[in-house]
Amino acid sequence: MASTIRLELVTPERLLLSEEVDEVVAPGYEGEFGVLPEHTQFLAILNIGVLWYRKESAVEKIALGGGFAEVTPDRIVVMADTAERADEIDLERAQRARDRAEARLKELSLDDETHAKVRAALQRALVRMAAGGGE
């Protein structure tokens, strides 16, 4: 029985990651789910959120902007709309984006069409900050 699982993370622009890891936790549609080696076949929509994976005792965080995950017993492939490693995240920019989104949300009414968009932008900023080790 394999003791590790292959994590592949692709975005439309690039292949971000292809690594053997021990454990992956991803932000699924209905909440976070964990994946260990020998997981059953599984296909999920991913929300905007933080994905983290553990390799022995080292934990890495990735900020995801939504996507899909396909899990097979020896592999998890994450097809993300956007994905950034913690060390790639510009915290200040994310903070500015959050402030901007928060300010706009105050002006917009709930049923405004752009409301959902701005809220998604806010969420992405928050996720970046969380993954990047900010507040």
Partner: peptide
């Protein structure tokens, strides 16, 4: 022939987001 996936939320909903993408 192969084992089907478990889907979250459901196969239809996944298709509805997957195909436009």
């Amino acid at each position: 022939d192969e084992v089907d996936y478990l889907y979250e939320p459901s196969r239809e909903e996944i298709l509805a987001t997957l195909l436009p993408k």
